[in-house]
Write a protein that binds this DNA or RNA. Sequence first.
DNA 1: TCAGCGATTAACT
DNA 2: GTTAATCGCTGAA
Length: 194
Amino acid sequence: MPKLPVEFYTRPDVECISRELLGMYLFTRIEGEITGGMILETEAYGGTTDRACHSYGGRRTGRTEIMYAPGGVAYVYRCYGIHWLFNVITNGPQIPEAVLIRAIEPMAGLDVMLRRRGKSVAAASLMAGPGNLTRALAIDGRLNGAGLEGPHIWIEDRGVRFLPGQITAGPRVGVDYAGLDALRPWRFRVNVRA
DNA sequence: TCAGCGATTAACT
DNA sequence: GTTAATCGCTGAA
């Protein structure tokens, strides 16, 4: 299956990329174990003019530094002291935009993901939320800055496409502090009902 | 140098 | 519905 090329990520429209990532397949290969699934939910983070974005106003620190890299690398950071969140960096160098991957549908390595989550049966909670997603895929800080063309993490285009009516756009989660930017409908989700 | 906080989750009542 | 867990980043001192 074709991995998405760097050119997919370096395009300038983060909202467009965020939509197009729905239906793509995200995989990780950690310690020889491959896990992954289809992306169901994303959020766009619009760089220096988006108050909800870590790089708002051109903020540049050790954590956000990787956002200024050219598109096509992973941005992994810790949140609430416990969880790892996984983002895809988009756009060109020095343009710090990103797409947060919030949910995937488990596909490959289900048994491995269950073991990592400490569950014995497949449940809806397996992939509920971005923190659980990274735990199931064994994504952590070591993958911060990793290229999205492998070998440890990559995204494949398997030809799945959604019509506009199958995608729900809404306000993003957990960004109430961002003022008017919190209202931007930059959260994209594949409708649960078929 | 350090107090306060956060793109969350799970275990409570 | 409420709250504890838990730690790196941020910004002010």
